[in-house]
Structures are given as C-alpha cells and as structure tokens.
Design a protein around this nucleic acid. Structure first.
Length: 430
RNA sequence: GUGGGGGUAGCUCAAUCGGCAGAGCACUGGGUUGUGGCCCCAGAGGUCGCGGGUUCGAGUCCCGUCCCUCACCCCA
C-alpha cells in the first residue's frame, strides 16, 4: 500500500464511527444537563500559547509538539491538549467580563508527536470541560462528578484517584524540602529521575522504577506540606464527593505532567488496562488564565481520552433495524421508487434504493445487509394494480398497501404511523 | 529515542524438509423468470511488504530496507 494514514493517526470507519457517535451524543447531552456550553477552537495555536501555558519544562513542550512555521515565519503548533487554547480564548474574548462562572466543554482532535502504541496516538481525541471563575471546592467536585457520571453512563468501571499538589503559597516549600532530601540520595535514583529533579521534581514521586521505590517511600509527603487553605480545599472536595456517593482514593504520589495544575488533581483509571490506563484526568489550574495575560481567574476541568474510552468497551443497548428500502423492478417502477424515496426522505425517514441495477433478490439482500426494517416492493404488478407490497424484514411478514391514484407515499406514511416509526422531523435536535 | 513481535486474498490466518499459494468469514452470481436471513453450488479476488543474494527451484534460507504492532519513557 503506497498511501496510508500518517503514523499514529487512524481512520474511524462504520460501524466503529457509529459507536463514537453514540458516545459523543451522550456526552453532549450530559454536559448540557450540567450547564456547560460548547466552545469550538482552532486545532492550532501560536506556539507560545502552549510553551507558556503548559510549561517550558514539560515533556509535551520539550519534545512532543507538531510545530511548524507559517508563511510569515510565525511558529504554529497543532494543539497537544485543549485547556491552554480555552484559556487563550477566554482572555482574548474577555469572557470574564460577561459574568462568571463560565462553563465550557470542547471536543476534538489533539496532536502529540510520540511513538504510538495501544491507547496512545499522534492524533487522538479528547472531550473535556472547563469551569472557569470559581475557586470554590464545589466547582472541583462538580467537574469530578460529571466525569464520573459520563464514564458510569457508558458502563465503564473506573477507579478515581485524587490528590492536591498545593498552590503558590505551599508548593515551593515542599519542592525545596523534596529537593533537599533527594539531593542526598541522588545516586540511588534512576537516570530519568535525576533528570526529573531538574525539570519537574514532583514527577519523581510518580516513578515506577524499582530502584527509586525505596527512596520515594522515605521522601517527605506532599500532604504534610500543604498550607491550611489547600488542606481545607481538598477536605471540602472530598466531603462533597463523599456526599454525592462518588468513590475515590487519595493517592499522594499522583502528580500531573503539566505545570499549570494547582491544588486538586485527579485521574480516572481503567482497572484492567496496564500501561495507558488513564481514561480521563484533570484538576484545578488557578494560574493559567493569568499566565495567558488575563486577570487572575481560578478554574478547574478535566479531559477524557476518547480512544481509551472506546477501548474500555462502552456498552450500549443494541441498535435495531430502521428505515425503508425501496425495491423496484423495471424502468418505470425504478423511476417511481426514486421519487418515492425523495418524498419519504423529506418526511425524515431513513430510506434508500438500488443504484446498481440489481435483481430483486439482490436488492432485498442489500436491504437486509444495511439494516433496514422494511422493504417496499414496487414492480410491474404493483404499478398496474395500484398497490405496494410492504415486507417487514424483522418479522418476515408481508402485506399489501392500497395506493389508489398512485398515492404511494401517503399509503406508506399511513401504515408506518401506526407503528410510530422514528422520523427525525418528530424529534428535532436529538 | 530504546527494546520485543509481526507483514501471504477485503478481514482473521494456515502453508511440513526449500517443491503447483490455501482455508474460514466477507463479496458476486445461481439454486427460486417477483422475495432478505439458514442451507447448497459456483465464481471473482494475490507485487506472499520492498530490494538484492543462495539454489534446478524461495512465501520458506541469507543480507538489506520499509511499514505495522506491543512495551519502555511520558501521557488522555
């Protein structure tokens, strides 16, 4: 094969695309119910949006971005995540001036230049929410609850882990203490961790290397260094989650890869998957909007990895047969079927007919293969006798519909009305 | 960037010691001159990833190369 989709990207074909559609429809409905509204952003930003937003030292900014120059020589980057772009748009359009909080959700492709593997792609899709303008613990709790509800409604079991990474008033002191501790035992750490000490020291805590485990176990705990305000915040979030019946566990070693997080961080993990087990993750980012040049606006959000969610096997009730396939034989009947299809479609009914000049048998086979509920047979006999033959492909029963004066569409609609067959015209916006 | 596994029909895969490239599913047609699914019959479908080498003969052995995949790192 000469031409393929680029490495780490994939085509999502039917029927898989239909599973995606269902997940997205459910998400849109659920986020709407929680009072969030959609924001649609460019998939590229000027590079400094991410460099400043995520932190120069993060892996994403250092080596995972698709970056290129536009014709004016300005550096652009395909978004590796969405939150920085949301913050940029928030500042650009002065959304804080129109009244807060601002509750937004987004959905779309993200890009990271990494070696692909299961659950990790160069183009992947995220769906997420941002609640901006509130520092109240109930904002954190709502966002976490929403994420939890989303996964639960898909029938996906997941484990929620929660932590606080402190804020500007307490984290520096902790990092100092951690640095002092690790400095004395640097020889015992893996090479990666020695590098992490310089770049983002918190992530040493997250290391899975055996040799580091002992060192990490003896390290000062972040929890002990949280300031009074952060401690109360975390406690309040936990209380609300508990009251809402959301199960979680405290994970003192949980640290996020992006610099913008403050206080609350969390992750929903797939209990069965090994490596790429983070289905969704998020946290509070009280400094990001200011970093983008706006006022100081606290915010909290999450993002779910759609490929990973799809991989976790969301369960749906099986979709049934739907629509009508018009089977026609002979030139005049085909013409009549063509016109009937046009009218039935205008009524919002899923409807199709043969375009390959195939036999009646082959047309019926196609109707079955494409999942149509009904077949309407229109041949010489039907034309002459002014009736239609309607066959239910599910039950295998067949009947005759009278259509005097060639009023075929009316005959069909009248009959289907009795079954309350779905039409999009009757359920706009769903 | 570092390792492991793998590339044969549209898909999932087989092919013994180096000896005529196959199966299941899917597809098309027929069995039924106007009736889907189940069954039966038939058909179509191949650059054995690519290039070179060894050999009378290579899907199979050797060298190179490309691609896919899983894992590490990191992350959704």
């Amino acid at each position: 094969m000469d031409l393929r989709a680029p490495k780490g990207t994939q085509d999502i074909l039917p029927p898989e695309s239909e599973r995606w559609r269902r997940v997205l429809d459910l998400a849109h409905r659920l986020f709407h119910v929680y009072g969030y509204r959609e924001i649609i952003l460019p998939v590229m930003e000027y590079t400094e949006v991410f460099a400043r937003g995520l932190g120069e030292g993060t892996d994403i900014v250092r080596k995972e971005m698709f970056t290129f120059l536009d014709k004016g020589g300005r550096s652009l980057t395909l978004r590796p995540e969405a939150t920085a772009g949301v913050a940029r748009a928030f500042v650009q359009h002065r959304l804080d001036k129109a009244g807060m909080p601002v509750k937004l959700y987004y959905c779309g492709p993200m890009f990271r230049h990494e070696r692909p593997q299961k659950g990790r792609y160069r183009q992947f899709h995220q769906l997420g929410v941002e609640l901006m303008g509130s520092s109240h613990p109930s904002a954190d709790a709502e966002v976490i609850l929403l994420c939890s509800e989303f996964l639960r409604s898909l029938g996906i079991a997941s484990r929620l882990v929660l932590n606080s990474v402190g804020d500007a008033s307490c984290r520096p002191a902790y990092e100092e203490a951690l640095r002092a501790y690790l400095h004395g035992r640097a020889e015992e750490l893996c090479p990666d961790c020695r590098r992490r000490m310089e770049v983002n020291i918190l992530r040493v805590l997250d290391c899975k290397e055996r040799q580091c485990a002992g060192v990490i176990a003896g390290a000062p705990g972040l929890g002990d260094y949280l300031c009074e305000a952060c401690r109360h915040h975390l406690q309040a979030v936990e209380e609300l989650l508990g009251a809402a019946g959301v199960e979680f566990s405290r994970e003192e070693r949980l640290v996020r890869g992006l610099d913008y997080y403050t206080r609350t961080v969390f992750e929903f993990q797939d209990p069965v998957l090994g490596g790429q087990n983070a289905l969704a993750a998020g946290g509070r980012y009280d400094r990001l909007v200011e970093e983008m040049g706006g006022e100081s606006v606290p915010a909290v959000g999450f993002s779910v990895g759609l490929e990973r969610v799809m991989n976790a096997g969301p369960s749906f009730p099986p979709g049934g047969r739907e629509g009508i396939y018009l089977v026609a034989m002979g030139k005049e009947a085909r013409k009549q079927a063509f016109l009937m299809a046009r009218h039935l479609r205008a009524e919002g009914l899923r409807c199709d007919l043969d375009h390959l000049d195939r036999s009646l048998k082959a047309q019926m086979k196609e109707a079955d293969r494409q999942g149509y509920r009904f077949c309407i047979i229109l041949g010489e006999e039907e034309l002459r006798g002014e009736y239609l033959t309607l066959r239910d492909l599910e039950t295998g029963t067949q009947e005759r519909l009278e259509a005097e004066g060639g009023r075929r569409v009316e005959a069909v609609l009248r009959r289907l009305e009795a079954w309350m067959v779905t039409r999009w015209k009757q359920t706009p916006g769903s």
